[in-house]
């Protein structure tokens, strides 16, 4: 019996590693130079955004989560930090940048997303 329980535990650990770290989430391709990002219920929607390289685009954030943590948007590699007012559209302009993966997150990193520029 214990063997099965232990095996189940190990599989659970494997699943945690796979689901949270190894799985490559699908990325949403930006169209028409801008995309709306909803900040709600603990996540950015979409959280993974693909942006063409060397082209300036706009991310339009709408925060519907009153948690103060969600208020700050940081894209450290691009030196962007913005305050997202509640229930307002805040447009963040991403300057034309070279290819790379640029994470964005809230102050406490509970909200996390990635900007894939390629």
């Amino acid at each position: 019996m214990m063997i099965w329980i232990n095996l189940a535990g190990l599989i659970l650990i494997g699943l945690i590693v796979w689901w949270f770290w190894l799985y490559k989430a699908q990325s949403t391709q930006i169209k028409d130079g801008s995309i709306k990002v909803l900040v709600k219920d603990g996540v950015y929607q979409p959280a993974n955004i693909t942006v063409p390289a060397h082209q300036s685009v706009q991310l339009m954030f709408v925060r519907e989560d009153a948690t103060p943590c969600a208020e700050t948007l940081l894209i450290p590699e691009l030196d962007i930090n913005e305050t997202l007012a509640l229930n307002k559209r805040v447009t963040v302009t991403i300057p034309a940048s070279s290819a790379g993966v640029y994470p964005f997150h809230c102050q406490m990193q509970m909200y996390r997303g990635t900007l894939v520029i390629k």
Binding site: W19, F20, G42, V43, M110
Partner: peptide, 11 residues
């Protein structure tokens, strides 16, 4: 929602 996004947080 975080789980669906392959993320985990305080929630």
């Amino acid at each position: 929602n975080s789980f669906k996004n392959h993320a985990a947080n305080m929630d």
